[in-house]
Design a protein around this nucleic acid. Structure first.
Lengths: 221, 221
DNA sequence: CGTTGAACGTACGGGTTCGTCCATTATGTC
DNA sequence: GACATAATGGACGAACCCGTACGTTCAACG
C-alpha cells in the first residue's frame, strides 16, 4: 500500500519482498494461538482471528486450508516451541539427583510461562486428541523428554540411589501432572479455595514441593 | 399422545402426574451433562441436547433459562455428586497415615470413575471459571475436603509423624493434580507416548505411586 | 365440569459463522 | 517489458444455531 522501497536483492535461495508469505503465516499463527487458547476450538472465531491479523480471512484459507488446519498448525507450533527448550537440556555431567531436579524445574517453569500451550493441550484433550493423533511430528518431539529422564534414572540406579521399579514415563507423568495442573486448573482451584496459585510465595513452595516429592519417591530408603 | 391411564391419586403434598417436571429436568440435565462434557460449552448444541431428550428445546429454556443457565446447572450437579461421596468419608478413627491413604484412594477413584466431571472442570478452566465463580454453592461443597485433610494433618502432627510446613490446601492440590491429570490428559498423553493410562496394571501402579509420593512427602524424616 | 395456571410442543426469525468467488496487486523470469 | 504465478482483499452466500412467539395439553380445585 505504501511505497516498496526495498530493492529486490534476492540471493539464490533467499527471498526478500513486500509480499511476505512467511511473515503473513507467522502473524496468523500468532493471533490464532491466542484465540484458540482463549476460546477453544469451537469457541474461536475465524473472523475474529482474521480481524486481529495484518491480513485477511482469505489468507487463512489460502495457507491453512480452514479452521481445522489452522488449529492443527497452532498445536504443532506450540508443542515444537516448548519442547525445543527441553531438548536443549544438557544434564549428562550432573549427578542424577541434581539432574532430576533440573528437569523438574524446567518443566515447572515451562508450564508456568507458557499458559497458551497448557490451554491448548487442555482443549485438545477435551477434543479427545483427535487432531493431535494426526500430527506425527508432535509425537517425535515429545519422546526427547522420555529419553532424558531414562538416562537420568539409569545413572541413578547404577549409582545405587534410585529404586528400579519406576519407568521414565511414570516419572514424567508425575512431574507433568503437578506442573500442568497448577496452571491448567488455576481458575477453578482459585475460585473454589480463594487462593492465587501464581502468587510468588505459593509458587515457590509448590515448586519445592513437587521436586521433593518426586526425588523422595525415587530414592531408595 | 398415547393414553394416560394413571389415576390422579394425589396425596396432600405428593404429586403424581404424567406432567412430570422433576423427571423432565433430570432428563435434560443428564443429556446436557454428556453433551457439554463431550463438546465443551461453545461446542455443545442446544438443539442436539433437546433432540436427545424426551422433551423439547422449549423445556430447556423453560427450566434453565438458556444455554448458560443449563451449563451452570450441569456444573453444580456434577460438583455436588462427586463431593457428596467425599463428604461421606469417616476417618476419625483411623491413624493419620491410613486416613490419608484413604483420602487419596477416594480421590483417585472419584476422578477415575467420573470422567464427565473431570471434563467439565477442564472446560470450566478454559472458560476461566467464569460460571463457577457465580455458583457459591460449589465453593461450599468443596471446603469439606480441606477440612478433612486439615484434621488428618493435625492428628499426624500431634503424633509426631508429619512435618508441619505443608498446609491442607497444598496437599489437596498435589493429590488432585495427579488424580485429575491422568484422567483429563489421558488423550494427549496416550497419543504421544502410546500408552493406555486406564489399563488396569498401570492404573494400579499409579495409584500406589501417588499415595507413596504424598505420604513420603509428609512424613518426617 | 369449567376454570386457571403450570407444563409442554412446533415452528420460525434474526443473527452469526464458515468457507468461497472474483478481482487485484506483487514477484520472478525471459 | 510482457507473462506466469504467487499473494492478497472484499464481498457474499448458505448453513447453522440460539432464543422466542404462539398454540396446546395436563393437573388441581371449587
Amino acid at each position: 500500500m505504501s511505497s516498496s522501497p526495498s530493492p529486490r536483492k534476492a540471493a539464490a535461495n533467499e527471498r526478500r519482498r513486500t509480499n511476505d508469505p512467511e511473515r503473513t503465516k507467522a502473524d496468523i499463527l500468532l493471533v490464532a494461538t491466542e484465540e484458540f487458547a482463549a476460546h477453544g476450538l469451537s469457541g474461536a472465531r475465524v473472523d475474529a482471528i482474521a480481524e486481529r491479523t495484518r491480513t485477511s480471512k482469505r489468507m487463512i484459507y489460502y495457507y491453512f486450508g480452514g479452521k481445522d488446519g489452522l488449529y492443527l498448525a497452532v498445536l504443532e507450533k506450540a508443542y515444537a516451541d516448548i519442547r525445543a527448550i527441553e531438548a536443549a537440556l544438557d544434564l549428562d555431567l550432573l549427578d542424577p539427583i541434581e539432574a532430576l531436579r533440573r528437569v523438574i524445574d524446567q518443566t515447572f517453569e515451562n508450564d508456568d510461562s507458557h499458559r497458551d500451550f497448557v490451554r491448548l493441550v487442555s482443549i485438545e484433550n477435551i477434543n479427545q486428541a483427535k487432531h493431535l493423533a494426526e500430527a506425527p511430528s508432535i509425537r517425535k518431539i515429545n519422546l526427547r523428554i522420555i529419553e532424558i529422564l531414562g538416562a537420568i534414572l539409569e545413572r541413578g540406579r547404577a549409582a545405587g540411589l534410585f529404586r528400579s521399579d519406576l519407568e521414565p514415563i511414570d516419572v514424567h507423568m508425575m512431574i507433568s501432572a503437578f506442573c500442568f495442573f497448577r496452571v491448567a486448573n488455576r481458575h477453578t482451584f482459585g475460585a473454589i479455595h480463594r487462593v492465587d496459585l501464581s502468587e510468588p510465595g505459593r509458587r515457590q513452595k509448590h515448586k519445592q514441593m513437587i521436586a521433593d516429592a518426586v526425588v523422595g519417591l525415587l530414592m531408595k530408603k
